[in-house]
């Protein structure tokens, strides 16, 4: 599903590479934690998958597509198959829960009939039934993140990327967020989650890829956060 082959990324005006000869494979339906300290290259990894950045070296395949050969006008179609969740939720403050989720479908031209059918299903999937008409500022952080996850998942992407989704949320609420991610993963969606949260990684017992200074220092199935190697 995601295939990195010897990928190196150096940002302009920086000497040290953000990713340094990274090779990794993520299969369809996998759940992968991306761990490592700040600046270790986790976010760069995610941005490369979305083709928001281009690698200086190496090849990236996402959902069977060679990103280097993907023309610019086809990037939106790539992104429709990838859902994204962020630490800061990125909801539209002037739209309610339903409208925030529906927005993701409206802007890719889905018909109204389809939107009216799918959005309530997804709102229920993330555990927000009955709150569809709340505004974002009437929701707790955990609930806002659920809205963001609903928006990321509403178009049934093949891959869900989560960049520190529990970063702004207390541990108890985080468990609920992880349950939703797990539920999404069980539908067959590949999930890649970058995180600092050791407790979550330890409790989930999923594959862990650890980055340090842009290099992969550990790739372990059913791993934990801080295990020595």
């Amino acid at each position: 599903m995601i295939h990195f082959d010897n990928v190196t990324k150096v940002y302009a005006n920086q000497n040290r590479p953000a990713l340094d000869h990274v090779s990794v494979d993520v299969d369809k339906g996998e759940f992968v934690f991306l761990v490592g300290p700040s600046g270790s290259g986790k976010s760069t990894f995610l941005r490369l998958i979305l083709k928001e950045e281009r690698p200086n070296n190496g090849q990236i395949h996402v959902a069977g597509k060679d990103l280097a050969r993907l023309s610019n006008w086809k990037i939106p179609h790539l992104r429709r198959r990838i859902g994204c969740v962020f630490q800061d939720f990125r909801l539209l403050p002037n739209k309610n829960v339903y409208e925030n989720v529906a927005f993701a479908l409206e802007v890719i031209g889905k018909p109204n009939r389809f939107i009216r059918k799918v959005v309530p299903e997804v709102v229920e999937l993330v555990g927000l039934e009955g709150k569809a008409h709340r505004m974002p500022d009437e929701l707790s952080g955990g609930e806002q993140q659920r809205v963001a996850m609903a928006r990321a998942f509403v178009n049934r992407p093949m891959i869900l990327l989560a960049d520190e989704p529990t970063g702004n949320i207390d541990p108890a609420t985080s468990i609920g967020i992880m349950k939703v991610l797990d539920r999404i993963n069980r539908t067959g969606t590949t999930v890649v989650m970058a995180t600092h949260d050791a407790a979550i990684v330890d409790s989930m017992r999923k594959r862990v890829v650890e980055l340090e200074d842009g290099k992969i220092v550990r790739d372990q199935s059913r791993g934990v956060y801080g295990q020595a190697y």
Partner: peptide, 17 residues
Amino acid sequence: RRETGIMRLVGASNLYI
């Protein structure tokens, strides 16, 4: 910028944005 950022992310075409 919020709206256009999300539009980009969920794969809206340039024309739409």
